[in-house]
Simulated scan of single mutants.
Amino acid sequence: MIATSERHSAPRDLDLSAHGRRTLDELVSGVHDVLSVPSGTPGPCVLVATSGSTGEPRRVRLPGHALRASGEATAARLGGHGQWLLALPTEHVAGLQVVARSVLAGTSAVILPLAGGFRSRAFSAASRGLTGPRRYTALVPTQLHRVLEDAASGDDAGLVAARTFDAVLVGGAATSPALLDAARTAGIRVVTTYGMSETAGGCVYDGTPLDGVDVEVRDGRIELSGPVLADGYDGDDEATDAVFFTRSGRRWFRTNDVGEMTVTPDGSPSLRVLGRADDTLVSGGVNVSPAAVESLLVGWGPLRDVCVVGVPDEVWGTRVVAVATLASGADPVDVLPQVRARVTDTLGAPAAPREIVLVGELPLRGPGKVDRRATTELAARHLATEH
């Protein structure tokens, strides 16, 4: 039994899911304590909340060895440790990882103030605080889109800054092929990441798992294994046992994402994420993948951000609705016919949105993830007033 005095003197879990902000120095100190725990030794973990984009968030227990494995594998993939620009909230795993990678690298992260939202000029100013020699940052797709949109409007300060990074990691939400193509054409070294709180953040970069990480797709669902896995959900053994399991002597995490393994032109296997298993809509008896529709529409033509949801419909069972923001200077007239034609030509008429709801901004939660539940409610309220 641990004596009371010993229990109070031992380092505590770093609970990022709790209310209240911490300074960067406090975060660095707490992350350093967690990273200092040897593998296989009991010690403090980081408690980080899942995004909760489709349900209630859970607290994930991330031990030091998982954060170390993720950080070292990231450095190996990107070409070495470097200095990071922190452009994401630290209460979520993507922001936490910027702090952890900085601790492992022995560098100090530069903070981008996020009060009032992401601004390209602020991003540019913060970037000038980096001293290198290697420079990295992590963004969500909405931030990357803002950099390109501002450049197209004549303010290229953010784009000029983005070009100076050795890698710009983009994750936290699905990134459309159009946005990736535009960013790379503009000279930004974009690296797409796939992962979640349960895998210490991104563990698959540009479709290829980091060193030590294995990916399998079984019954359409993506399963991940490796040293980056979390211990489980804090205080919820039932939820932990439902998704963490052992197979062939290895520990695995079964995600709620649908994917497929493809082959790159050089013959290497690559993971393609198709969306979440619980996102599929059934309209007129036909299954519709919101992710597939969104990949066609995000950043295309007059549209910027797009979330495809389903609302109850007496005829179709579920009506497919696109909730979207317009690109800068785009004309809202006749957007729906253009959208329906594009989706019908590629995915078929059942997948084509029957309505489009134009908004100033999509509802977000977590590190820039679209809040699908709030977006669905928004669409339902709008259509109720329209009809």
Score class of each variant (00 low, 15 high):
I2H: 12
E6G: 05
R7M: 12
S9E: 14
R12V: 12
D13W: 04
R22P: 00
T23Q: 01
D33N: 07
V46L: 07
V46G: 08
L47N: 05
T50A: 04
S53T: 13
G55M: 12
R59G: 08
P63E: 12
G64A: 11
G64M: 11
L67Y: 02
R68Q: 08
G71F: 11
G71D: 08
G71C: 04
T74Y: 06
T74W: 06
A75S: 10
A75H: 15
A75R: 03
A75I: 08
G79L: 09
H81P: 11
H81S: 13
H81W: 07
H81L: 06
G82C: 09
W84Q: 14
L86Y: 15
E91I: 06
V93H: 08
A94P: 01
G95S: 10
V98Y: 02
V98T: 08
V99C: 14
R101Q: 11
S102N: 02
L104K: 02
A105L: 01
I111G: 08
A115L: 05
A126Q: 03
R128I: 01
G132P: 04
Y136H: 07
L139Y: 02
S153A: 14
D156M: 06
D156G: 08
L159Y: 02
F165V: 04
A167Q: 03
L169G: 04
G171T: 03
G171A: 03
A173H: 00
P177C: 02
L180K: 01
D181T: 02
G187F: 07
G187C: 09
V190P: 00
V190E: 00
V191K: 07
T193E: 06
G195S: 00
S197R: 06
G201N: 01
C203K: 06
G207H: 13
T208I: 15
T208W: 10
P209W: 10
P209N: 10
G212T: 09
D214W: 10
E216R: 15
G220H: 14
I222E: 08
S225W: 03
S225T: 13
G226A: 09
G226W: 09
G226Y: 06
P227W: 14
D237K: 12
D237G: 15
A239K: 02
V243I: 03
T246W: 11
S248Y: 09
R250W: 01
F253N: 10
D257P: 03
T264G: 08
G267Y: 12
G267C: 12
T280E: 15
G285D: 00
V288E: 10
S289Y: 12
E294Q: 13
E294I: 14
L296I: 11
V298R: 15
P302F: 06
D305N: 12
V306P: 15
V308S: 02
V309Y: 10
V309R: 05
V311I: 12
P312R: 14
V315I: 09
W316V: 15
G317V: 07
V323N: 04
V323K: 04
S328E: 15
G329Q: 11
P332D: 15
D334T: 13
A341G: 08
A349R: 14
R354E: 13
E361C: 07
L364S: 13
V370C: 15
R372W: 06
R372D: 11
R373H: 14
A374L: 01
T375G: 00
T376Y: 03
H387I: 11
